[in-house]
Design a protein around this nucleic acid. Structure first.
Lengths: 222, 222
DNA sequence: CCTTGTTTCTGACGCGACGTCAGTTTAGTA
DNA sequence: TACTAAACTGACGTCGCGTCAGAAACAAGG
């Protein structure tokens, strides 16, 4: 595990005794799962495997989660916030969209690099359970909505050509998700730099045109 | 099942008695699997479920396949050919690449629309078995290689700017795979037309520039 | 310190799916 | 019809799941 750039994800690192024991135990289980999924794929995850390092019995697991997919749901909730925060710049903020877009992709790549195997586990888990599949695709859909809105807004300002915003947003989001997961979801992870450049190039040339690629700004003429 | 455009996939529709019985039974099982996966997800597939409509016992399955993933491997071999054939125009042929690219995406969308749920099943199966995961990602890698080669060739001819071919090809291929699977992998399938347009737009504007979008040709000046 | 009630935990169970094997049935051949 | 090889089957042991009745740990009141 000599890869660099891994700031381990920890749930509730505060062992405050005030906090109800149930919450703390739940965090212990989540952390065990995170640790497991950092090195081994979701398909190898069993209740026994998660619980073993905690010293608790297998049955105890079911006091905190209905099943493994409910646990994954809890992990998704954590990751989801990190990712939304990363994508924030392009989605929310105002200003010349090209540098914002670069910034957003920059952060997105960083987060996915740091959490790669975990995110891949979430994506894998989505294929094996109908309920969690809904949760995961809802997460992706939230991105579709946000990107669609942003594209349409930029179209109103004449920055993006008259394309069908929703399916393009859909496709570009799948691009990100599956590229990032394929690149960083397993060890050894790919070099993030070429991934970052490729994603940026694809998004920018598709939405804002090839000519915006070299200049850091240049769309919004002041 | 009133969706249009489904030409059912059949393995060895020839019930020639000359052909060894083993081969015919194998085809029967494959067809049962195809039928099952057209309406239900891979996660619901069990050996008992595949064998039930065949009238054979569960144990008989293991005479033909090591396990369910070996069966998926066989299905991949079939689909793989269809898909390679679809992508052929852009990869192999010579000439103005933009219309070739449109043609290739056109065919690719059609195949994925026709086989959607089955392809999704393959992609899902890849996450649950280490061996089949290799096979599936090998399939995707073959596309990476082909696309990389084509990009580099077009770069030599000055048709594509000086970008890092491999990671861009990688990203664009994940784009196709995950978009097509998400769009057509389950019922009801999305309208293929916007998907086709979006993919074409993304590939073309990324590789050949925004200005090539409207004209069906125009890159190769004769 | 000893009850008492609640929270937390556990061993043991039944279930469903897997993959195997010894042995039976079927089909082809002489 | 008899024989042989191919095709098939019932039954078994294993593993992981999710449940449940009850044990253990813990907190509070007497």
């Amino acid at each position: 595990m000599s890869e660099s750039g891994y700031s381990p994800l920890r749930i509730t690192p505060s062992p405050v005794p005030q906090v109800p024991k149930a919450e703390r135990t739940k965090a212990v289980i989540l952390n065990a799962a995170i640790e497991f999924l950092w090195t081994r794929p979701f398909r190898d995850l069993t209740v026994a495997e998660v619980m073993h390092p905690t010293g608790l019995s297998r049955a105890a697991f079911y006091q905190y989660f209905r099943d493994l997919h409910a646990l994954m749901q809890a992990l998704q909730d954590v990751i989801q916030d990190e990712i939304f925060a990363a994508a924030g710049p392009w989605i929310e903020e105002v200003g010349d969209p090209v540098p914002l877009m670069r910034e957003a992709i920059d952060r997105l790549v960083r987060v996915c690099y740091d959490r790669g195997p975990l995110i891949r586990a979430l994506s894998d888990a989505a294929t094996t359970d109908a309920v969690f599949e809904q949760a995961w695709s809802g997460f992706l859909q939230a991105f579709d909505d946000a990107a669609t809105a942003r594209i349409e807004e930029d179209q109103r300002q004449g920055l993006i050509p008259d394309l069908d915003a929703r399916p393009v947003a859909f496709a570009l989001n799948r691009l990100d998700a599956s590229t990032l997961i394929a690149a960083f979801g397993q060890h050894p992870r790919l070099d993030p730099e070429p991934v970052r450049e490729s994603l940026a190039r694809i998004w920018i040339s598709t939405l804002y045109g090839t000519e915006c690629l070299d200049s850091d700004s240049g769309l919004v003429r002041t």
